[in-house]
């Protein structure tokens, strides 16, 4: 799979580390979260069959993180 690094261009997926779902913010008030809410933050992630907003890390290249949207069925990327 070719992954479009915003800095380096399209590179093979083997050059990257996969970062899973994008947009999961560290909770502003961890101490205020219930155990269930906290478990949600640590463990629950979207896992869609279809468009997925995900993160990649160009570990063997520029070492920058970025997000894109990829279809998890066709693997087509529409950043």
């Amino acid at each position: 799979m070719l992954v479009p690094c915003p800095w380096c261009g399209e590179r093979e997926d083997g050059e990257f580390k996969y970062g899973g779902a994008a947009g999961i913010a560290y909770p502003a008030q961890p101490e205020a979260a219930s155990d269930t809410e906290w478990a949600g933050y640590i463990f629950h992630r979207p896992n869609p069959k279809g468009a997925f907003q995900e993160r990649w890390y160009h570990s063997a290249g520029c070492r920058r993180w970025f997000a894109l949207t990829r279809d998890t069925v066709t693997h087509r990327i529409n950043p």
């Binding site: 799979m1 093979e12 997926d13 083997g14 580390k17 996969y18 899973g20 896992n47 069959k49 997925f52 995900e54 990829r70 998890t72 069925v73 066709t74 693997h75």
Partner: peptide
């Protein structure tokens, strides 16, 4: 394969 997928295929590497 490290990425999420429902495609039933992975990378040749």
């Amino acid at each position: 394969d490290p990425y999420n997928s429902y495609a039933q295929r992975g990378s040749p590497q």
